[in-house]
């Protein structure tokens, strides 16, 4: 798997992401500066990592979404290339039009950092094939603006087309207000685009790939991508 991690000013989880990709895929990802106008030759996964691009000062992700490199990412995605956006990366993908909807401030208006449980809704996508449908995984969140919102029609389409891949849930997989940590519509933690090659999610699977963090549930996402790309190759 040849991955490229985008670096915008203010991004701060690019090292965490690069380490996870290296540990799971065995290959060092390319770090791509925001001012670049193209992606490295042969890239088969683009990752937009977490952080506070441009300080989140206008709207989360709004300025980064207009960076030169994002044109290259849009072109890559339109050719079917795989794109993963995590946390601020999810926000950037929404702002750049690659995913529908927006991320608003958490319902309780505070930054939250703790482990959450996610229900994997289907396993037949490149981003979930490392898991079983209905499986519950534990990964951390660390965000102040992760409350996913979209108009009713968009939500209906997302649900109808099976594009919600990850949902906040209880340790045993129940969905409900008490487990919906940030007030997201339909407890949405991660969605894909229509074509199924772009995923945006708020939680950080890249922080749960090693036993030292107390849990390795995040590994499956990256392992699934590696398996998918190997089969495709």
């Amino acid at each position: 798997m040849k991955s490229a991690v985008l670096v915008f000013p203010g991004i701060n989880r690019e090292r965490d992401m690069a380490r996870a990709l290296r540990l799971v895929s065995g290959r060092e990802p390319a770090m791509v500066w925001h001012a670049e106008t193209s992606l490295p030759e042969g890239t088969d996964l683009v990752v937009v990592p977490g952080g506070f691009s441009y300080g989140d000062y206008l709207r989360c992700g709004a300025i980064a979404a207009r960076s030169p490199v994002m044109d290259a990412v849009r072109a890559f995605a339109s050719r079917g290339g795989l794109v993963l956006g995590v946390c601020n990366g999810f926000q950037i993908l929404c702002e750049s039009g690659l995913l529908p909807g927006i991320l608003m401030r958490n319902a309780r208006l505070k930054f939250i950092c703790h482990d959450v449980h996610l229900r994997v809704e289907r396993s037949d996508t490149p981003f979930t094939r490392g898991y079983n449908a209905g499986q519950v995984i534990r990964v951390p969140v660390a965000h102040g603006e992760g409350n996913y919102a979209a108009d009713e029609e968009t939500i209906r389409r997302l649900e109808g087309e099976g594009r919600v891949l990850y949902r906040y849930c209880s340790p045993s997989g129940e969905i409900g207000d008490t487990h919906n940590i940030n007030g997201a519509a339909q407890s949405i933690a991660g969605i894909i685009n229509e074509r199924g090659n772009v995923l945006g999610m708020m939680p950080h699977p890249e922080n749960h790939v090693e036993g030292i963090m107390g849990c390795t549930d995040g590994r499956g996402l990256f392992a699934g991508l590696v398996a998918h790309l190997e089969r495709a190759a």
């Binding site: 965490d16 380490r19 505070k110 930054f111 950092c113 890249e206 922080n207 790939v209």
Partner: peptide
Amino acid sequence: VWEQYDHVIGGNTV
């Protein structure tokens, strides 16, 4: 208090 602080970034918080 500490859940308002990102305490896992870096992936090294054992």
